[in-house]
Simulated assay, not measured.
Amino acid sequence: MRNSKIVLGIVLFWVFSLIMSGSVLAVDYEMKIGHSQSVKTPRHKACVYFKSLVEKETNGRIKVRIYPSNQLGTEAEMMETVKVGAIQATLGGQFEAASPKLLIYTMPFLFKDIDSVYSIIRGPIGDKIAATTEKNNIKILATGVAGGLRNFSNNKRPVKTPEDMSGLKMRTPPIDSIIKTVKAIGGNPVSVPYAELYMALKTGVADGQENPFTNMVDKKLYEVQKYLTIVNYQFHPSPLYVSLDWYNSLDSDLKAILKKCAEKMMIYNDKLNREATEDSFEILKDKMEVNYLTEEQRVQFIEKSQAVYDYYIKEGFFTQAEIDEIRTAE
């Protein structure tokens, strides 16, 4: 009996020593991340990178599990499950569901170029916008780019001014700021599910559409669209939304590590998106007639889209001062 106790004591001491040395690691927390895109996309590749960073930096105390392609539900459903803590994180849209303040990013012609986007989402203004989600039990650890700036295409005529948009049936996603922008600049919004976009353009249900270059290439829209207008009119963020209750349950050192890893993840995400955007444009410009706007033409679109700002400011989503702060900081 005495020998058994001695052996047990030695074994316990050995296990304790291994744990303290890091040779045996217990998983303290599980972090499930759901998103809507395929494993081939920059978003998923960024998640895989995040997983490797987190598990290494926390010595395995946080185990990250990734669920792509809507495995955990639609974007809306995943957002709700993050709010109640059923899963720990998600990436993607659902801006207003997280905080109406995030819609400020989607205002037309707010950013001059993608570098201007980076300077805001990675800086103090981006941090301030992200903090507004905490009232909905969501913590944004970092914000990246979702596919690049958005542009117009159509199969009727070159578009260089708002007058050229007149009468064009433009397919829009169910995003209010896009619908309002297309109306403001003279187009006729047509609601078509993304999965049906190609056929809608091919059959004439819609004359044109708006999307990042990467989406246009992925859907092979160059086969059913003739004219491409480089307008860079809108940006969509891709925040890493985390359950605030879960985040607050973490030790302070783990919180700091997650934040650091999320920031690195988004820089990698943005790099992948930038490369994909450039590669996609090379394909599009060989298959479509590309129209570049002069500064004077771009100003015409900006002036027409002011009505969109007026609406959101009047409804209290954000203030003119907040818009000015972003434009000044760029």
Rank of each mutant, 00 (worst) to 15 (best):
T328K: 15
I185N: 05
I19S: 07
W14Y: 14
N155M: 02
S21G: 09
T181M: 09
S238I: 06
A307M: 11
G126A: 08
E75N: 10
S191R: 12
L250N: 04
E263R: 12
I267L: 13
G144T: 03
E303I: 12
Y29G: 02
L25Q: 15
V308W: 02
C261V: 09
L103T: 10
K255E: 03
E196Y: 12
G60A: 09
S177V: 15
E282I: 00
V84P: 00
G204Q: 02
T229W: 08
V15G: 05
I175G: 01
F301D: 06
S21W: 10
A97H: 12
K5E: 11
T181S: 09
G187W: 08
K271P: 00
Y227S: 05
K112E: 14
K271S: 14
Y29K: 15
K156D: 01
N211H: 14
E55K: 04
M266I: 09
Y268T: 02
V159Y: 03
L197T: 15
K304E: 12
R2S: 12
H35K: 01
N136K: 13
D253E: 13
A146E: 10
T41V: 01
K135P: 00
D286I: 00
N59Y: 12
D164F: 10
N136G: 05
S4Y: 14
T41W: 02
A256G: 00
I120E: 04
K219V: 03
E303C: 03
E223M: 09
T132W: 07
N215F: 09
Y222D: 08
K264V: 01
I120P: 03
N273W: 11
N155F: 06
S116K: 11
Y227R: 08
H35L: 10
I185T: 04
G60N: 06
